[in-house]
Amino acid sequence: MAANLRVLRRRIKSTKNIAQITKAMEMVAASRISKAQARVEASRPYADEFTHVLKTAAKAGASDHPLLTPREEPKRAAIVVVTSDRGLCGGYNANVLRETERLIRRLSDEGKESTLYVIGGKGTAYFRFRNREMSGQFTGFSEVPDYANAAHAADHLTAAFLAGGENEVTVDWDSDDEADSGAERKVMFRAPQDAEGKPGVDEIHVVFTQFQSMMTQTATALQVAPLDLESEEDDEGSESSSSSDDSDGSDREAEYAFEPEPEVLFDSLLPKYVRARVFAAMLDAAASESAARQRAMKAATDNANDLVDNLVRESNQARQAQITQEISEIVGGSDALAQ
């Protein structure tokens, strides 16, 4: 009986320790959420203005640019999967990966091959374990992503997108250098060197967890390129339809001047656009990750506390039983002596 009591006490102690750790992780995650949310908010003006610029330029007649027109018979699609580096965040990664598998299946039904670009340690581990080939892996920044991380990943995508579904990415640094050293320097996109030989793609999709509120985050798949101007215009339309100067605005947009001409402008907008989208997805995902972790850790703390309560009750019972037994032994012993 005494041994049992000791075991129970030990379990209570270790459970309390676990509760303390999960409580601390919950607090850390909670403080990260608000920071991550603030970053999502702060980056919004850029995304909004950028979309506006793109739309305006598109209306002014660069609409046959590869960014805007779906390719005929798309062969391959890139999927960017945004997961976390660390675990202990409930179903966060599982949801993203499930959504990814769904997207892969849908694309293959449409006759498109998928090639994966995975952000975050959990995602890369998942696909490596299943022996699935990945065109790109980026890890080490899932909780606090910065723009350089996003740009690095996005440039791989842009390179693949420019190459097209039937080709491979070729990196031609030398000729770029010559072009750059010319007097009239034009900013051209430079593919990252390690993108060499990666399969090209016709479409870019992003799977990430959208931060809707503290309690709801949903894994979402979005098509980034080619850009679907129609549907985005619908979104905007519903917002601005109430304002009376709508038709006025489109008149003015028709008179826009471009420097340089729209086609060239679009070429340099494309990589920045992909960067902005990937960055936005990463920020959203970071906020969701912290929220998911906070919730998972809160549940863990609550469970640990429940467990402690039950164990304390059990140990009290054991202690009481021990005392009762000792008393009855003493009473029994003195009775025997009295006789």
């Binding site: 826009y256 471009f258 420097e259």
Partner: peptide, 10 residues
């Protein structure tokens, strides 16, 4: 100024 979209120097 007239409506304009321009790319700035890198």
């Amino acid at each position: 100024h007239e409506p304009l979209i321009a790319q700035l120097r890198e």
